[in-house]
Amino acid sequence: MSIGIGDRIRALREFRDITQDELARRSGVSVDTIRKLEQGVRESARINTLRNLARALDVQLERLVGQTTVTRQLTGHGGLLALRDAIQDPGSLPGVLGDANLEDPPGPDEWAQQVQAATAAYWAGEYSALASTLPTLLRDGRATAREHDTEGVWTHLALAYQLAAS
């Protein structure tokens, strides 16, 4: 048995310790709509209604509608954990091999093309593919910046971190 959107709304609302009336006030969605969703009378709503409810409940829309944000593509060599590790730079920890041991980092032009491809993936909404490539992109970017200390390389590295933050 799967959990419906109304059940998720109710659970999140109760977790936030707010009433249906308070949720309606915060979201701008009628209390009648909220009540019907929670009771299962309605099984869906317009996307704007769902966005407003998600915002009022302080959750991502994906969580409210029950879509997972982690896919199979995110469990291989890339993914959210690898992205977290790349951002945190575990190479700075004692006993962990860092980016300095990377053999033959890409040149500035090749790395800039990789950043441009990642940016294109972001704007195309290809977030799973992007999340799987970002850890390597960040590692390569730090190594490229060590080898080629130029403004262009640092600009692209900043953009890569901005993509990771987004």
Rank of each mutant, 00 (worst) to 15 (best):
S166Q: 13
E43C: 02
G76T: 14
L157I: 10
A86R: 12
Q88H: 15
G6M: 06
P106C: 04
A11K: 09
A129K: 00
D58I: 03
K36D: 05
V31N: 06
L93R: 12
W154P: 05
V70S: 08
N48R: 01
V153E: 00
A11D: 14
L12M: 14
D32E: 07
T144C: 12
R84K: 15
G66K: 03
V153A: 02
S2N: 11
H148L: 03
L102Y: 04
G152P: 03
G141H: 09
S128V: 02
T155G: 04
R55N: 12
W154T: 12
Q114K: 06
D149E: 09
W154G: 09
R55K: 11
R84A: 15
D21P: 04
T150M: 04
A164Y: 11
A54R: 00
L61I: 03
Y161M: 14
T150H: 05
S132R: 09
W123F: 06
A24V: 03
A129G: 03
A82G: 15
G78H: 10
H77C: 10
L134V: 12
G28W: 04
D140C: 10
G107Y: 05
E22Q: 13
L83N: 04
L93W: 11
R146H: 07
E151G: 04
D140T: 09
V153S: 00
V41S: 08
A145R: 11
P108F: 04
P94E: 15
R46G: 10
R13P: 11
Q88K: 14
L57C: 07
E14A: 05
S92R: 15
L134H: 10
G6T: 09
R84E: 14
Q88I: 15
S2W: 06
D109K: 07
T33N: 05
D17P: 01
E22R: 09
Q114D: 12
L102V: 08
H77M: 11
A11V: 09
D32H: 05
L159H: 10
R139K: 14
A164H: 12
L102H: 06
I34S: 00
A118M: 05
D58V: 06
Q67M: 08
L97W: 08
R46S: 05
D58W: 01
I9F: 08
S132H: 07
T136R: 10
R8H: 10
R84Q: 15
R46W: 01
A11T: 12
V65Q: 00
T68Q: 01
A112R: 02
Q113G: 08
R26W: 06
D85L: 10
T69G: 05
L134M: 10
A45W: 00
L83C: 07
G152W: 03
D104G: 07
A120T: 03
Q88A: 15
G141M: 06
D21S: 11
L74N: 13
T75K: 10
A54I: 02
Q162C: 13
A124K: 03
W154L: 10
G4L: 09
P108Y: 02
S92I: 15
